[in-house]
């Protein structure tokens, strides 16, 4: 799980072009939206694409994203349980 969390942080930094942010600077349990990284709805779309492209997870209901993208740890746990690649 720790390896997946690190990989996920690196992917998010790359996809969202988070300059000056390092994996160590993202707390595993910090909120991704609003506080924490301060992501917004466009970032949510980017993360949905990332989930499908990188891990083969297709989110059919956008409302699911609200729960899955709570934090890096929650996201990693969902990916771990549902990934197809």
């Amino acid at each position: 799980m720790e390896e997946l969390i690190l990989q996920l942080k690196q992917e998010i930094i790359r996809v969202l072009n988070l300059e000056d942010v390092t994996p160590a600077g993202i707390a595993d349990s910090a909120p991704l939206f609003g506080e924490g990284l301060g992501l917004d709805s466009i970032d949510a779309l980017e993360l949905i694409v990332l989930m499908e492209k990188r891990y083969g997870i297709k989110l059919k209901d956008p409302a699911q994203g609200r729960e899955i993208f709570t934090s890096i740890r929650v996201m990693a746990e969902y990916i771990h349980a549902n990934r197809t690649k």
Binding site: V15, I42, L45, E46, V49, E52, K53
Partner: peptide, 10 residues
């Protein structure tokens, strides 16, 4: 590359 799928919004 992605076959007209999985396009990012930005």
């Amino acid at each position: 590359r992605e076959g007209e799928e999985l396009l990012t919004p930005t």
